[in-house]
Design a protein around this nucleic acid. Sequence first.
DNA 1: TCACCGCTGCGACTTAAGTCACTCGCCCGG
DNA 2: CCGGGCGAGTGACTTAAGTCGCAGCGGTGA
Lengths: 207, 207
Amino acid sequence: MLAAHFVRKRYGHGELLFSEGDPCRGLYIIESGKLRIFKSSPNGREQVLAVEGPGGSVAELPVFDGGPYPASASTVEDSQILFVSRPDLRSFCLQHPEVALKMLAVVGARLRRLVGIIEELSFTTVRQRLVAALVRLAQATGKQTDRGIEFELAGTHQEMAHQLGTVRELVSRNLMRLQAEGLLDVEARSIVVLDMPGLSALLEANP
Amino acid sequence: MLAAHFVRKRYGHGELLFSEGDPCRGLYIIESGKLRIFKSSPNGREQVLAVEGPGGSVAELPVFDGGPYPASASTVEDSQILFVSRPDLRSFCLQHPEVALKMLAVVGARLRRLVGIIEELSFTTVRQRLVAALVRLAQATGKQTDRGIEFELAGTHQEMAHQLGTVRELVSRNLMRLQAEGLLDVEARSIVVLDMPGLSALLEANP
DNA sequence: TCACCGCTGCGACTTAAGTCACTCGCCCGG
DNA sequence: CCGGGCGAGTGACTTAAGTCGCAGCGGTGA
């Protein structure tokens, strides 16, 4: 039905789909692989806004408000991406209102996550953000073993830092500190949570 | 056409429309007055996400994704608000797809502003955020006088702090510091920008 | 096999941010 | 006219955050 206007394309890992400020041409839908949406600062800092996997989409927003992309997007691994041009999507939504509502729901979910990031940035310390990320990873990908809950970090410390809105050293240091406190066992990129209750407790209190 | 389902209501200043976490009942449209949308932390800190004036709307998002309100909203001054219930809005959008697209544009604009907040929070200092806010105010409401560009702060230092994601003292101190540097003339809530180029320059450099 | 490079682990240091505890001035109501 | 309360200014201090520089480790490719 929309046949003619889809474009399917392969990307290698680390390829840039678009940069913030670029005029918006259309919507990207992930068939396979993984994308990250991020802001970068002149000083080389980065803040990841979202990581999307298969089924996810990127740049739903500027398709509708006509402005430029507010952030950049790049692949994290080899990916297959479907591209839908802006005019096609608009007319499709006009013909199928329920699709427009779906889009609203997707955008809504994204908005929710952004609010969450703002909350973390303005109310919590790097340490707490790191702990929160670890707990999320443990729940999502962790395996219960005799030593504790075991899992791998999703990328380098540098990449973690980008997601937490900080720098590499702080990730490294805070991991070491959590280990020193007996909550974790860290071996480069693989983590064993020794004391999950103790870890979660850090999310509540302020000191 | 939708006549029966509108509710018009008056609010005094500082009244709470809803709190984060509340289940979403519907959309609020501002006829007159001013609203602020904000997150608050257990420690009494607040982060303002948006301030909306007449014609603006609040809570477009959760109406469509079905989740709870992600933040709280309160009036800043006496306001007259129109309320549209969730089901009404949904069915209206289904009948008038172009309205759904408009909603997407509105949500898009909001998303853009949130991304801007995230950028500021993770890449800039309190000082820079304050300067950025002053420059915005000067452009929006400032009057050119013989001494410079003159305008009033929008609320107390405490409220400024909430908008910048920091605490009162830092607003106060940074204003004094800018004055000491000869860029501003501060008299409680009224500001005179003496050196606009010098002020804007602080937005670029890192030191 | 060796050189290089990316990732990680520190230590030492600087600075922004936030906290605490007061003082002062102004306005408003009793 | 006086007292209370709020907003603002400020000094002293603590701590989180970030910067710089470097050393060690492990894998990859020439």
